[in-house]
Amino acid sequence: MINTTFKRSLRTLIAGLVLSATATLAQAESYPSRPMTMVIPFPAGGVTDTLGRATARQLGEVLGANVVVTNKQGGAGTIGMAQIAKSKADGYTVAVVPAAPLVNQPNLRRLPYDADSFDYICQLFSSPLVLATKPDSPFRTLNEVVDYARAHPGELSYGTPGPGTLPHLAMEQLLDVLDLQLRHVPFTGDAPGVTALMGGHIDLYLATGTVVSEKELPAVAAFADSRIEGLPDLATATEQGYELNADLWGGLIAPRGLAPEHKARLAEACHTVAVSEAFRAQLKSLGTNVAYRDAEAFQDYVHTMSATNARLINKLGLAQ
């Protein structure tokens, strides 16, 4: 019994060894010639992870290589980002990341990386944020919220998925512009925060449009250029007289120092993925939109946002 099992596993083992050896030998001129790794700096199963896996699949098909996903979670995404930054820039390590660990975290505290530690390949997604209210809230418009908050400073509360996240900074910016005082209640992710809003334990929450429409939460404003799909009745902040936008966005990056031909190949593949119907449909089911920017535009946008948020963080005294 043991003997046959042993033989069988040995045979498989040898087969595996031979296979991997040939694969190494076949490593020829064409890129990519071996499986690639995609690092995702958030735990398996979250929105970023699901987005990343969808991208990995499509990217793998376009490039004709296997893209293996590894989750490297912790520290609000910074642990994974640090690993990406110090990986070999051989074109075989890429990452799908949301903007917060790129444009917020390095401004909040000292980290072993910053926005300059990466090569930007393309921006892939963006979902506009919506200011949702608790179910029995009396507020119908952004103006009513602003008026009430002005009359009763420090009375209303708003939740975020954590300190230093994009919704947190967006909300702080809003409060700063409008000169309002609200209580900030940070949660550990959207799930507990939105639940608290549904139970009426907090008054306001900045969430993506899908969350709001699926959970049937009332909302007062969409922070987007135009009205968003799924919530056609919800006026944008601009329509209500407040010119403010806020969204969750991110894209494909790699450690800095890619060979130009690798970067070009990746950028081209990334573009193919971004415009494909399958990718659009998949992102839509996850409640976010395809928002393509090419390598240069993506890099510029990251740097602009990083500078903006750095000023905001300094002004609000959020840095550690």
């Binding site: 043991i2 099992t5 042993f6 596993s9 040995l10 498989t12 083992l13 595996g16 293996v68």
Partner: peptide, 20 residues
Amino acid sequence: ALVTLIVTSLVWLVFTQLLH
């Protein structure tokens, strides 16, 4: 020797081949 080989290759197979 036998147990070493079986355990080593079995664990390797399960992780790399089955679970990728």
